[in-house]
Amino acid sequence: MGYFEVKNVCKRFGDTQVLRGIDFSMEKGQVVSIIGSSGSGKTTLLRCINFLCDPDAGEFYLENQLLFDAAEKRSLSDAAIRSKRKNFGLVFQQFNLFPQYNVKENLCLAPKLLAKEEPDFKARKKELYAAIEAHAAELLEQVGLTDKADSYPCELSGGQQQRVAIARALMLSPKILCFDEPTSALDPELTGEVLKVLKELAQKKITMIIVTHEMAFAREISDKIVFMAEGVIAEEGDPQTLFDHPKSPRLQAFLAKTEV
């Protein structure tokens, strides 16, 4: 069994069956890229994995343990979902930084709130907060934004905002970090700086699931490519095989369209 396994995930909105039984698995430290045409359900899948939308059926296994089973989701309390969700991080297409907080505060807000739940918070407050701030400084350096720590989101370019969003997601050290088209909202000249950060994370063996339309990038960074079409995984494999020798007609058509 893989490090993270998705089994038979189904989701419908009204009459549209958006996910029709998604199965895939990945190993620790791997990068999996999800590609597929618009409306194929890529975002919905990421949202299910991050508990932003609950699947009608399906299971998630993390580290050989059942993490989520759609059959018993009703019995899950908010607190239970919150603790399960800590295993994952999600970086949005639209960054979704908190506008009223500066970069450092964006990074520290959630970890500091979580620190309050530590049993000995009162006694160790200073120490906990100092550790969080040190971690934030470290991550900001990693994404190359140390000099922007006190800037507000509205003072940053899209590429910088997305790098802050990545650092913010890393603050909680998720086991699996998901990205939903992290460069789609960016001007072409700004995508490079974000992709560079992702490559560095891949080198650090951060486990990542990346939904992307950047084919060259997906090919370079991924250990595995998953091609989704109409709510199913139509084809998956290592990048060379999948891009150079696509088997299914749907993937062939998709690649022909995107390469033009």
Binding site: F51, R85, A110, L113, R168, L172
Partner: peptide, 11 residues
């Protein structure tokens, strides 16, 4: 997205 960002950060 503001609510969702907070949620995925465990708030």
């Amino acid at each position: 997205g503001q609510y969702e960002a907070g949620e995925v950060l465990g708030m």
